[in-house]
Amino acid sequence: MVRAQFEPLAKLWGVKNEKVPELLNREAKLIMIDGKLQPLLNNSYFGGTYIDVKVNKININTVDQSKVKEVKNSLQMKEYKNYLRFKKAINSLSQLKSTFVKIVKLAQKYNINSKIGIEPEANNVVIYLKDKNDPKNKEFIKNVKFFKPKIVYSSKKKKGKMVLNSFNSSTLVEKRQINQIVFGGDKITANYGPCSAGFWMKDQFQQDFLLTAGHCAYPYNDTSPKLFYRYYSNLAVLIGSMENYMVTPVDVGFIKKLTVNSHIRVVPNIRNIITTGVVHPIYVEYLIIGSVDIISAGIHICKSGFVTGITCGYVKSLDAVITIRRGSEDKIGGLITTAYSYYGDSGGPMFQFSYTIPFVYAVGILIGGRSNSYEAESYCEPIRTAFEYGYTLVHYPH
């Protein structure tokens, strides 16, 4: 059945596949309303919004209840007021933004590995830390308590086992003169280890580039060409060299496709990977028809990575600061989501489903995560970052 292509999203929402198109239409309407609503909310009286697709509501954190009537009766919201749910809140968005800036500065001062974002559902600044007992973290926690953030520590519970395909340089082949398609989510390799392919893009000269995470170019002080290969089913084919990459304040890398003797085909598709190296036997791919900016918390987001395949989660935080210490890398403006990911998924595409299958919209690429059998966060570098560097997305029709 074609609607089985909605399986990852049906699992997230806890509904049957047939129900997903209806909920996608509902979500799209709520996003549209939220876009009209947010400019009406004074940041001193309200503490952000987040969408709940299952109950068909936009939750509005409300510090001053006397302002509710004004919003409900506004010209923009009059016909949508049944979609609004005002929830009593302590923190205004102005307070949260001020607190967020101060906490980020403290995190930088103590040089900690952290993920910090304003999460509307928590109505608070939320800090994710790996180790409560790390001396630097202890000092940071002691100094940050004044701001009363929510602190989440990595679970010590046993992680689910992941099996990574080993990389064998003897499988690097140029002799098989066949076209090789690189899908979003496919395994790609270089010096650093396994990563996942993101989206195909073009520069101003209409040259083809594959977008992935910039940190896949590690080690950064190595000046030799950073060659990347598509690796699938014991076959590796040269894609090209990563000529342009950044790891801070954004995390993006652009692999230039070879123009001579290249057997790589550019197709704007995402591979429907079930688990490590296993593609769905019937519904092989999703087709990219454009891109979207994420403006609302609580909406769905999915990712494709060669290790964990396609998983979906919710957007928890917009414009977060994500610090991953491989040097001093602060990712500014990233999304924090609840999608499940694992080592090797980095660089893979993050996307949203269209209500018309098998079409999807590009959102960004995976740049890191913290996942086990009980909880998950995945961090997204928005696709707009690539646009800001002058690249355009390859999508259907093309």
Rank of each mutant, 00 (worst) to 15 (best):
L12E: 08
N17R: 09
N25P: 00
M32R: 15
L37G: 07
N42Y: 01
N43W: 05
S44Y: 06
Y45N: 12
Y50A: 00
V53K: 04
N56T: 09
S66M: 08
V68H: 06
N73L: 09
L75H: 04
Y80S: 14
R85D: 13
R85Q: 14
K87W: 03
L96Q: 03
F100S: 10
V104S: 06
K105S: 15
Q108L: 13
I112G: 00
N113Q: 14
E119C: 03
A122K: 10
V126F: 08
K130F: 05
I141G: 04
N143H: 15
V144L: 07
K148V: 11
K150N: 10
S154E: 15
K157P: 00
M162D: 11
V163F: 15
N165I: 09
N168E: 03
S170C: 04
G184N: 10
D186T: 11
D186Y: 09
A190L: 06
S196Y: 14
S196F: 13
S196W: 02
Q204Y: 06
Q206R: 14
Q207E: 14
L211T: 01
A213F: 13
S224H: 10
Y232S: 05
M242W: 12
M246K: 12
V250Y: 11
F254T: 11
T259I: 13
I264L: 09
T275A: 06
T275S: 13
E285A: 14
I288Q: 06
D293E: 15
I294D: 02
I299L: 05
I301G: 04
K303W: 11
I310L: 06
T311H: 13
K316T: 05
S317F: 03
A320P: 01
T323A: 13
R325E: 13
R326K: 09
G327C: 02
E329L: 10
K331Q: 02
G333H: 01
G334D: 08
G334K: 06
L335Y: 02
S341F: 12
G344L: 01
Y355A: 14
T356N: 15
V360A: 04
G368M: 11
S373R: 08
E375I: 11
E377M: 01
E381A: 06
E381W: 07
L393V: 08
Y396P: 00
H398W: 03
